[in-house]
Design a protein around this nucleic acid. Structure first.
Lengths: 154, 154, 154, 154
DNA sequence: TATGAATGAGAGTTCATTCAT
DNA sequence: AATGAATGAACTCTCATTCAT
């Protein structure tokens, strides 16, 4: 593709960014919806949400999804607002699951902070995860669950 | 300050970035060293390492410390290498603490992955933490410890 | 032409300088080669070399050819070396002609110094020659030959 | 000396350049005056003028004397005019000598062109002369005289 | 729709000059 | 006088965007 060609398809580079972000978010939301449709116990659901999020981050074409918007003033208020809304919606869907886990003592922290931490831990993986090295996405998901889910010995 | 003024003090903008990164990393390392000098039990030490890291990220002048280098080709190989070395050194210092916690069953995950997740969770906080809102750095540190430290019921 | 336009065609201003120097040198060399292909007596050849050099200096687009490189650190070692090589090659081609003239007593001076002086005399003309004034390039060439070629009275 | 210190002594960098040029020109003129005071035959005088010019170019502190003004628009009209006047004066002093040599058949070329060529040949020497190598200023002066002075065999 | 030369705003940098000390 | 940090105009270069083909 050549320098002037994008402008046949997008009004501007920022319009392209917006499109990519939106499509990426919507695809992550769709993937997450699949997980939530199947009713499973909370821990299994959390593991599957984590796995689904890692796929959205590390496998799909939109790995930078959660990082890009933060260091860019490229989007206008309207666009930024819509992207934020999609992200809010995405993150909100985790709350009932976290809530249930907290109520059974498996998750022990302020839930909003816990959600922030879990997302941060996962999002940061784009900086160190290397598909060609040892760990698989399943390994990551298992480790994440093991890290934050407390099994009361009984 | 005016356009040409930085160049009285730094050879280039990149030289400034390097200086900021280095000073920030060294100050974070110094803060961490203070924590590790006092011998406490592993959980307390972890809590204090977390608290110290949050201070380096969110209170000091160098909030972008862990983010900047990744999306920048500004540093040459030698500079990048030194920064990486400092970061490695910094992260390595957590391992004995995590190891001890794992050995007593308080931490349950592959240790390297656990370290990545914990750092990610903390580093990501620069994107959502707002000092003027409810939670303090202590709240964050407590929540992080509660999230990952497993108390076995005795 | 506007500020950024050169950079469509050249990587940098220095790359442009290098291109200009190289093309100018190669064109001067080509012009000189034409002269040397025709076998004439040494004096005629010298006159034609002089005339050809004056054309390269004063008529073509590359009048600064022999001046620019000296007061400029714009070229890197490799580029400077190639330009020097072309210049060496160019100047070396005069030596057999000067040598023959010396052997018949028409040229009386250390040959290397003579070559330096002749080139200097010609190169310096870019500082004073004015095409709109009296003298033509032929006048210059004739005067230069008359100045340095000694006719022994027979 | 430090960046701001020149401005204690000169109004501007250009004022310094002007001062240097003027002092250099006046010193070259003084040196030349010494030569012309002693009455000798024309050839000897020419040789001594040449030698004196080479000293002004290559030995004194003002080697760039004849080159600098040409690639600089640093001087204002008034200053440029005075420097040109000094240079004119300097060059004009050679004409009687050249004229006498021409009248005896020792110099064979249009005199104005001859003067331009001789000055060019000498001025260009700053680009190739190396005091540490073989030739001395005397060698240069001898070679220059030998090159342009025609000895009629008789 | 695709191309790529041209544009021009803006970033990074240099350097002569100023000025408080 | 000397200093050197600060200034700001000018230069080199980058990059998103435009436009004639």
């Amino acid at each position: 593709m050549h320098s002037g060609s994008i402008f046949c398809h997008f009004k501007s580079k920022d319009a392209l960014l917006y499109e990519v972000l939106q499509i990426g978010m919507r695809s992550a939301l769709a993937r997450q919806r699949m997980v939530l449709l199947e009713k499973r116990d909370a821990e299994t659901t959390l593991r599957r949400l984590i796995r689904s999020h890692l796929e959205s981050l590390l496998e799909s074409n939109s790995g930078l999804l959660w990082e890009v918007p933060y260091d860019s003033r490229a989007l206008n208020a309207r666009q930024r607002h819509l992207i934020e809304e999609l992200k809010c919606h995405y993150e909100a869907a985790w709350m009932p699951v976290l809530h249930e886990l907290a109520s059974t003592g498996c998750l022990r922290a302020d839930l909003t902070l816990a959600r922030h931490f879990i997302f941060g831990a996962l999002n940061w993986s784009v900086d160190w995860f290397d598909a060609k090295e040892g760990a698989s996405l399943d390994d990551l998901a298992d480790a994440m669950v093991a890290l934050v889910i407390h099994k009361t010995s009984r």
